[in-house]
Design a protein around this nucleic acid. Sequence first.
DNA 1: ACCGTTCCATGACGGCCGTCATGTACGAAC
DNA 2: GTTCGTACATGACGGCCGTCATGGAACGGT
Lengths: 228, 228
Amino acid sequence: MADFDKNDMDTFCRAPFFKGLARQTVERLFAVGDCATFAKDTLISSIGDNFGTVLFVISGLLRVSVCSASGRRITFLLVKEAEPYNLLGPYLNRSRFLEAQALEKTRCLKIRDRDYLKFVEQHPAIVHNILQWIGKSLDSANSRLLDLMEKKVETRILRVLSTLHQKFGSPLLFTSQEISEIAGTTPESTLRTMGLLREMGILSTQRGKIWIHDPPALKDTEFGAIKI
Amino acid sequence: MADFDKNDMDTFCRAPFFKGLARQTVERLFAVGDCATFAKDTLISSIGDNFGTVLFVISGLLRVSVCSASGRRITFLLVKEAEPYNLLGPYLNRSRFLEAQALEKTRCLKIRDRDYLKFVEQHPAIVHNILQWIGKSLDSANSRLLDLMEKKVETRILRVLSTLHQKFGSPLLFTSQEISEIAGTTPESTLRTMGLLREMGILSTQRGKIWIHDPPALKDTEFGAIKI
DNA sequence: ACCGTTCCATGACGGCCGTCATGTACGAAC
DNA sequence: GTTCGTACATGACGGCCGTCATGGAACGGT
């Protein structure tokens, strides 16, 4: 418990995932877990292994992605502070094909599968939060499916920029490569699109940084938003 | 309760979703629900409404899809007997953008959101089943994302045919239109691909029917399977 | 200050596949 | 049996966008 301070718990209590939970419940969650710190670029779980540990990011950023046979990476999720990773892992005793990596130095609350399962049993209130979170993830995945089937690359990139802006603010610290891995396209297409947006005065770019000047212009909403 | 017979419960008890649950639990699930029968082509929930009811199909088939602005339909899920629909709806008190429709005459066990929430609270064992089911759905959605970003149309159609064959056997009672709505392509592309497969002797087709002669030939697995 | 690496930027090309068009065949209804 | 609606089948065209190539700029390490 010495690993965590009161501040960490405060942050969690205010975060969307923990909404509606008693502070005591959050404290007990901390009590059943350990602190784990991953250096930048650490591979936390790789494809094929049976990763049953649940993580809650305290500070830093995790990327959940796969690297396909053709060498292209596809990013499913970015996990930031007070967000959970692998909520369902302990319930699926089979290897998943996802890979998690720390994009920067990341400190996590780490909970072993058995402790997690026991905790959920003993604190049924959290089931509500878990299901809500997963539900949003599922809706988001479906929205992205729709985007990929329906929309052109430019629209998808717009959506990704908009979503990232909502989640991380401005400037965005991502390269065109990283953007393209989320949008499902190539760095070249991303750069071309951002070139257009720059001409339109909607954003400006620097090596690894993107300033969004006109967030509403990115909104092209049809149906639900995606969640990254 | 007179709406259901012992046979219905037997089917459910044997089904994957209910694996590991006591028969008594299944019986009580039936007890809190009503029987609902939908005629073919009935729209069960449409886009934008706040559909909080959980359904378990007893017989028949439901399609979960969206119809995009450009008029193209995209099918996310086919729900067959002993499978659940809208497991998470009661936990997400916001309108979802999915639309459910009965593809044939379909009989369901219908459970109102409040009854469902109460049931889950009183029967924590089912949480495990729910999370497992949702976990598979999430993995499946991610697999489809990967397919759409990575694979060409032919491969996707192959995957869809393979998955449908596993779930429904042979012959498949789907039109090229319906296949394309799952694979995220057009009927023309689907027909062209199936033309090739027919020449290779892997399948044969008739109006609305597809016989798969060589299921292994359809397998081109990389990473997880999709689930339709 | 030099150099290597990484990222940005932009042009040219080509192929996949979505769109349109046309014709055929099957099945249901009367 | 005739008719009509729907699905199958296949060809032609065109555009989006992925790939390759080239050059320049920014940053870090020594």
